[in-house]
Amino acid sequence: MSNAPDPHDDGPVLTAHRAGLIGCRSCGRVWPAEQAVCKRCGEHLVPPDRRRLQYVWAWLFAGIITYIPANIFPMMRTQTFAGLQGSSEATILEGVVELIHHGSYDIAAIVFVASIIVPIAKFVAITWLALVAGRPATVDQAHTRLKIYEIVEFIGRWSMIDVFVVAILSALVQLGFVASIHPGPAAVSFALSVAFTMLSAQSFDPRLIWRGLPLRSRGNSNDGRGTQAG
């Protein structure tokens, strides 16, 4: 497999990797394949290789695991009149429902999209990208995958909204006896979940989308890697 030309690679475009070179992902400079560090910007040079997907999977699992307590535990605890008027705890979902009861549908929609739809869609998208990365694809499929990757990369940070909301509220509403808001454990695990998924998306190498198959770099030192394509 490692010597046969891959019919699925879009042939006419010469990549740095196929030319036996290695491109720097930080500044774009091209180096001979054995170069380890980019001399212009100091970035470590890594070939587009499916084995790098381990980082993606590791961060992704960390993100999914921390997302579970983020939904089970309360995001914040509201106390009015030092608990005399009752104190309420709200998870992410309860917070959304509460907002709907208040009649602020637009804000409820923002929170719902930012802290439930986006994280889950991100998990699904990264999983799918990591599964299909480096597998044969047509040019059109590759374009779709790149588009999805760019959306995931762009949208990841916006899930932090809910963490900021809790931070602002708990800082602001410290009216002592009258009302107070305290962050719950879910705030921390949600922040971690967002950070981990961001790291996962960042460790995904979009060059893999365009590589039909794993390394075929002139056959040397890369023999046997073709079997990893699965």
Partner: peptide, 11 residues
């Protein structure tokens, strides 16, 4: 004198 696309590695 070459540049590789950081997204798709095209030279």
């Amino acid at each position: 004198g070459l540049m590789a696309c950081p997204r798709c590695d095209a030279l």
